[in-house]
């Protein structure tokens, strides 16, 4: 009896810890008052509507979308062939390459951001947008390689040889036989990369410049000046977006198989 209640308590605390902040943000955004507070001063949806009218949010949302979509696509264009090479060929330093590719996950974002700023943006005079694009691509690349690699490893390499013996070139065998069989993994990598890029703060913090900010950075600076509940409303909307994406991916792809 005791152990049953203990386990229920632990599950309850865990869920509270995980979901609690989310609920607080949703409610804080629904405040009828002018300041961010919990519990909210009365209920209204005005802040949820207001976020769509803030011009800087529109701009930074567009930038974040651009970075998440194209950064991830670029990472896949680089990462899929890299994963293929690692899984199918006995390339020199294969293990080293895997480790190096994973580095942006292991190295703290603050350091990555500072390093990119100090050694890429300043000396080479890259524009802020280009630097952000390169940084986001690099950050997503490890996910692209890892996720695609795991679905490639589940695929028999005999299949490509069979395709070659039926008249395919090596490249043809890849596009006709390998790609259709790893498309679930590629899509999973895209979603994971998209979410990672979209929520990325520390690296973007260093690389944002005047007028060019990603959405999370823009929200930070907005909060420094204006302490109204719109940031909470926006956070809730973004969290909701992530949940929907992952839910749909799980439903149609069995997303959790790949991650």
């Amino acid at each position: 009896m005791t152990s049953k209640w203990t386990s229920r308590l632990i599950i309850g605390l865990t869920l509270t810890f995980l979901i609690g902040p989310f609920l607080i943000i949703i409610l804080a955004g629904m405040s009828a008052g002018d300041f961010l507070a919990f519990p909210p001063d009365g209920l209204s949806l005005k802040w949820y509507i207001k976020v769509f009218t803030v011009e800087s949010f529109q701009k930074s949302f567009a930038l974040s979308m651009f970075l998440a979509v194209f950064g991830t696509l670029t990472a896949l264009v680089l990462g899929v062939p890299a994963a293929y090479a690692i899984s199918r060929y006995d390339i020199p330093f294969g293990e080293t390459i895997k480790t190096v590719v994973a580095a942006p996950i292991i190295v703290p974002g603050i350091i990555v951001g500072l390093a990119l700023l100090r050694y890429l943006v300043i000396p080479l005079g890259f524009t802020v947008t280009l630097a952000l694009f390169l940084a986001h691509t690099a950050l997503v690349l490890p996910y692209a390689v890892r996720v695609v690699l795991s679905s490639l490893n589940n695929l028999e390499s005999d299949m490509e040889e069979a395709a070659v013996l039926l008249g395919c070139s090596r490249v043809g065998a890849f596009t006709r036989v390998v790609l259709p069989n790893i498309q679930g993994g590629v899509l999973a990598a895209f979603i994971l990369g998209f979410v990672t890029s979209f929520n990325q703060v520390p690296v973007s913090l260093f690389l944002s410049g005047p007028g060019v900010r990603t959405l999370p950075i823009d929200m930070l600076s907005y909060m420094e000046i204006t302490f109204d509940p719109s940031v909470a409303a926006l956070s809730a909307l973004l969290a909701f977006l992530s949940v929907v994406i992952v839910f749909v991916a799980e439903k149609f792809l069995g997303f959790s198989r790949y991650v």
């Binding site: 028999e156 005999d158 299949m159 040889e161 069979a162 395709a163 070659v164 013996l165 039926l166 008249g167 395919c168 070139s169 043809g172 006709r176 036989v177 259709p180 069989n181």
Partner: peptide, 30 residues
Amino acid sequence: NKRGIGLVFQSYALFPHLSAFENVAFGLRL
């Protein structure tokens, strides 16, 4: 791919995303 030799693999190496018909048609279509 230019030798004109067939190989039946021990693992069969069928293409899982294609139907039996399309598996057989694969080389002919190429």
